[in-house]
Amino acid sequence: MTERKETLLRIKNLKTHFFTDEGIVKAVDGVDLEIPPKETLGIVGESGCGKTVTALSIMRLLPAYGKIVDGSIFLKRRDLTKLQEKHFQEIRGKEISMVFQEPMSSLNPIFTIGQQIEEAIIFHQGKTRKEAREIAIRMLKDVEFPQPAESINKYPHQLSGGMQQRAMIAIALSCEPELLIADEPTTALDVTIQKEIIELLHKLKEEHSMSILFITHDLGVISQIADKVAVMYASKIIEHAEAKEIFNNPKHPYTIGLLNAIPQIGKNEGRLQTIPGQLPNPLSHIEGCRFHPRCFFAIEKCIRNEPPLEDIASGHKTACWRQKIVNKNSWIEYSKRYKNGRT
C-alpha cells in the first residue's frame, strides 16, 4: 500500500441471521467488504445469495426476525453496529442513503414527490419548508427532471417508472450522502430507461463525489457501472476484483459459470453453458465449499473444508481451493468431462 486512503465503509466478518419458524437462515455469513471514497462497488449474485441483506444490515433496515449476530460495519471510524438507534437516525438518509428496486412501492403514494424530498432535508438539515423546497427543486434538476418547478407537486402515480426512480434518487441524494446504496435500481425498468438511470448515477457520483454500493443480479449492468465487483454465492463473497479483471479473467468456477450462462449477441450458437443443479436451500448447511455440489472442479478437499477468500493477484481475491487450475478455458474442458462422466 503506497497511498493511505481512508476507507469510507469497512465491513468485517458480517453475519446476519434470520430466525424463522423453520430454523435459522444464515443470510449473510461472514462478509468482508471495503469501499474507498468516490468508488463504485458492485455486488452481484443470484436471488437469495445475501446481497440485499448485506445492504439492509448496513442501513439497519432488517426485518424484525433478522439480526446482525457478529461482525462490524465501520463508516470511517464509527462502528455502526454499536450505535444506538437514536444516533443511527442521524446517519441513515444523511451519510448513507438507499435507493430501492421498485420505485412504485417505495414512494409514498399520498405525498407529492416534493414533500417526500423535503422531509429528509427538514429532518437532517433543520431547514425551513421554504428553503427545503428550493433544495428539492435543485435536486430534481440534478436528476434531470423536465420542468422541476412544476413536477415537484406531482404524486408518484403521475410519473412513469423511470421518473419515479429519478425521484427516489433525488430523495436519497437530498442530504449529500457519502455513500449511496442502490439495490437493483434498474431491474424493474425497460432497457432504454435503465441506460439513462445508469448514466445519471455516473454523473451524480462525479458531481457529488460520493461512493456507490450497487447491487444487481445483472452482470451486464454491473460492468457498465462498477469500479470493483464482489460476487456473492450462498451468503458469502466468493470472488472480489476490479471490474475489468472479473470480466476478463474470472477465477472462481461460479463466476465463470455465471458469465457463460448469459447469451451473448452474435455469439455462441447452439446450447448455452449452464451451471448444473439448483441454488442451495437457505436453511440447509453445506459442508466445505458452498459451491461444491454444483462445481465441475470439486475434489475431496472442497467437500471437507471451506476455502477462505484469498489474494491471488493484486486486488484479486477468490475463495477456491482449485484456483490454480480454474480459468475460462479449463472451465469448458471440465464441464465436458463432468457431463461425460455422468452419462
Binding site: 432497457v191 430507461i193 441506460k195 439513462e196 448514466e199 452482470l219 451486464g220 470480466f247 458469465l259
Partner: peptide, 24 residues
C-alpha cells in the same frame, strides 16, 4: 438501434452520453 444500443454489454465500459428523448 436505440434498443440494441441500450443492452448493457459485458466487459465493455462505454460511458459516452447519447441523447434519446425519453418522453411518454
Amino acid at each position: 438501434k436505440i434498443l440494441f444500443d441500450a443492452i448493457p454489454k459485458i466487459g465493455v465500459m462505454e460511458r459516452k452520453k447519447k441523447e434519446t428523448k425519453a418522453q411518454l
